[in-house]
Every structure is written in C-alpha cells, then in structure tokens.
Design a protein around this nucleic acid. Structure first.
Lengths: 243, 243
DNA sequence: CATGTGATTATGTCTATACATATTCCAACG
DNA sequence: CGTTGGAATATGTATAGACATAATCACATG
C-alpha cells in the first residue's frame, strides 16, 4: 500500500529518469548523453526544465557538464554529502538536553605561529570555553579572534554568550574552511572533557573569513562518542529545492 | 591590481546584494524580506532571476522560504558544508602517491546483530581490505555486502578490484547514510595501520541503499593524521551552478 | 469562543524565446 | 606542418507570462 512516494512530476521526473538510465547502464560512465534540446523534445517539455534536472544531477556529482562539450556521465562519481554544522547550543537543545556554557579563559595575546599564518600578524583575542549537555562536558572550544577584523570583540566578555554566537550576530562570514579529524586528547582536553589522556576525540577546525580578512579560527574538541551524521544522494540536500 | 573577481552579473549579483543587506543588518535575522515580485521590480529583472538568487541563498541556509509565508532571514544559520568523499584510489593517486590495494579476507557469514539491523536478515559477504599510499597503510576497510540485494557479489573475488569500486560499477546506490567519528584503534586496527592500540582513528561509517534495499555497510578506519577538508559559504558548492 | 471554509498571496514550476559565452572543430594561411 | 581565426554548438542565463500549490488570514457560522 505505502508506495513510498508519488511519482514525481516536472523536472524531478526527468532527474529520476536520467538517473535510472545511468544506473541501468543505458548511459555508462563517460558516456555523453543527448543535449538539452533533444532531451526536451523526447520528454515533451521545455529546455529549461531539462536544464534544471541536469543541473541538479551535476550538483550531485553524477553528471559533468561543459559548454559545447556537452553533458557526460561522471567517470568517478564521488559521494557528495552536505553536512550541517549547527550552533552548539541548538544542537544540544534540539535533543532535549540542557545546555550549559562556561567561559574558561579570555585574553589578548600573540597567537602561535600556526594561527598567525591564517589570522594575520596582529594581536588576537584568545577565548577558551566549555559547552556541556545535561551537565556532561560536550565540546571544548579553543578560539582565536582577529582584533584587526573584529575590533569590537576586545570589549566583549563572552561570559554568558558564547563567542560563536556573538560572532554570528556581529561579524558574519562570507566563507570558511572546515576540517574534520581525530586527535588524541591532550592532558588539558582530557581533564575538561572528563576522559583519559590520549582518548580519541573528534575535532573540528574551522576558520571563517569576511572576504579576504580572517575573522576567527577555532578548534572544537568533542567528547568521546560524538559523531556527525549526514546523507548522500536522493534529492540533494542543500540545493534549496523542494520542501 | 588583482581585484579578486569581476562584479557578478545576473542572478549572482542579486544573490550578493541580498547577502550584503543581511550582513549589513538591513534585514536582520528573522526579518521577512520583500517578495520576489517587488525585488524583481527593484532590481529591474524578471521574477525568475530573483527566484534563482533566493533559492541559492536558501540552499546555503541563509534564507528560509515558505509558500505564502514569504522569505525570511534564517534565525539560526548553520554552516552547511558539502563534503566530497572520493573513491580511495583516486584520493591517493591525485596526490601523486602510489596506490596499493590488498584483500585481507573474504567470506560469507551471518553478520553481527548491529549489521543485520540495516542489511537485513539474510547471509552477507564480509570483505576486509587494506588500502595504502606509497606503501604506508592508509585506510582499513571492513565491509558487509548484502547478498540479497547484490547476489552477483558472491562470485567476485575482490583481489585486484576493491569492493567499493566493484560496487560503484555494478550496484549503484540511490542514497546513503554517512557518519564521521573518532574511534580508538583496536588491536587489529593498530596492527594493520601500523600504529598503537588506542590511537585515535578517523572513522567513516557508510551504508548505501538501492531504494529501500540496503546494498552494503562499510567501516573505513583511516590511519592517524587523516583529515577531511571542506569549505562553507561563497558560491555554494554542490548546487551545480557556475563553472 | 471555537471552528471551519474560502479568498488571498507568495513561492514553485513550466513554457517559449532570445541572447551570451565557452569550447570545440575545421579550414585557411603562413 | 603548425598556428590561427572563425563557424558551429551546447550549455548558461534572462525574460514575460502563465498556472499550480501551499499556507495564511479573515470572515462567517455554529
């Protein structure tokens, strides 16, 4: 009875049919598929509709498109996943847990060389804090904020509002770099996160920029057991389509 | 001299101008922005062009759109990153390193309960293998393949072609789940990856499906030092736009 | 006051047409 | 033979108009 989903209409129907042909090996990897005009004629729709469907498939990494050269089935499809990195407070509260934030330290200093390489040579604000869920340590935040880019941060205490949320409101970024890795807990990590030295921690490094000026670099060390979940395929998330 | 980029035209110009107004707090978080018709009039373009720009911003998590309710600036912008999980062989070769694949074990068996929960009750093929880069162990793959969904896998030896690549070619998936986490190396992990027991390993769990039938579940344990890099913001990756 | 129902409205999508732009291909030329 | 320049072509994008759909809001009704 539950057929799962009604047969899609419009550009999604074309999306699905093209995907079916790729999976069925009608169009094997590397194959150049018919051009938009021909597909539009075949499907009995406007070229813009075909364009929408093929553009979505290209966004999923299934197709590769180049002007004049045409559209071909990707030779090496990658798993393209969209990961939502939420604000920590919301991440905790949405699971129905109590959120606590505790500022550990705050002060201006000359950042270490590795941080200076991205933040620039000037003085920076160093903020460390602990976020916890239902009283249990959740993530240890170690952040440097560029006082060149965000001078207003110098007069902010960050005792009740986390630096992340303050920055989101006051210094929005245009883009950023993120890296996920696994690190062994240092003595300090371990003490704060209530685990043993050397425990495997999921760590996110993130640097955000306002155009070409670095705003902040942060290391987020999550308590053991943390995992990031996401999905691939289906209707591509993050493309703003559908509901 | 290098101005960085030429001023964008068309829908990207609208995208950028809307983003500027959000950053400038002309339109603060929660604010309902003008509707597409009004914006089109203001920018002197067609509504479809505004739609394209706003749809892109919604895909980036900056805007939230609902029919009739209109378009509002997101209250809690999330960092929406698109992560490309490439085929391991390519990941290594694209860095100019030599890729080696070694099958460790292969056999049909009754998977453990945790795996059965997703793969289903039937027998499954268990494949373990080691991928290495320039002779150094890179990732340890521990995979279960559903013989219900992919009966052809039973007669495949996987000695020279990795199970991942064989599956990509023979049993394409429609969607999948991915989880990133940090785990302590087991004795076996440590021996294979040439590290110590308890070392922090970056681990990817991935399950892929063909519609509602699970194809395979794999645990990929990367040698210490591995990290996944990605970016957020800018022109949204994975939306298939631009070149 | 609670509730249901229909008008209203903003977004979602499609069509047909047009022009822009990147790339390829081929032919002419040195 | 190599190089260059233009024609051909497929995608990228814009436009105006139209209808579809979902959600809200106001109003009438019990």
């Amino acid at each position: 009875m539950a057929t799962g989903a009604p047969p899609p209409k419009g550009w999604q129907a074309i999306h699905d049919e093209v995907l079916r042909r790729i999976h069925a090996r009608d169009w094997p990897p590397g194959h150049v598929i018919p051009n938009e005009v021909d597909l539009a004629r075949e499907f009995g729709c406007a070229r813009a509709t075909v364009n929408r469907a093929l553009r979505a498939l290209a966004g999923e990494g299934i197709l590769e498109r180049r002007r004049k050269a045409g559209t071909r089935v990707a030779l090496h499809p990658v798993s393209r996943a969209t990961v939502d990195v939420p604000v920590i407070r919301r991440e905790i509260q949405e699971r129905g847990q109590r959120y606590d934030y505790r500022l550990l330290d705050r002060g201006t200093a000359q950042p270490p060389a590795a941080i200076r390489a991205t933040l620039g040579a000037g003085e920076a604000l160093h903020v460390t804090a602990l976020h916890s869920a239902d009283g249990a340590p959740y993530v240890f935040e170690d952040r440097w904020i560029s006082l060149d880019t965000v001078p207003g941060a110098a007069s902010e205490c960050f005792t009740s509002l986390s630096a992340n949320e303050w920055l989101l409101a006051r210094a929005p970024y245009t883009h950023g770099d993120i890296a996920f890795s696994a690190e062994a807990a240092s003595a300090r990590d371990a003490a704060l996160l209530d685990t043993g030295t050397g425990a495997p921690l999921f760590v996110i490094w993130r640097t955000t920029w306002d155009h070409d000026r670095a705003i902040t670099t942060v290391r987020l060390a999550y308590a053991p057991g943390y995992r990031i979940r996401t999905r691939i395929g289906g209707v591509a998330a993050g493309t703003g389509q559908g509901d």
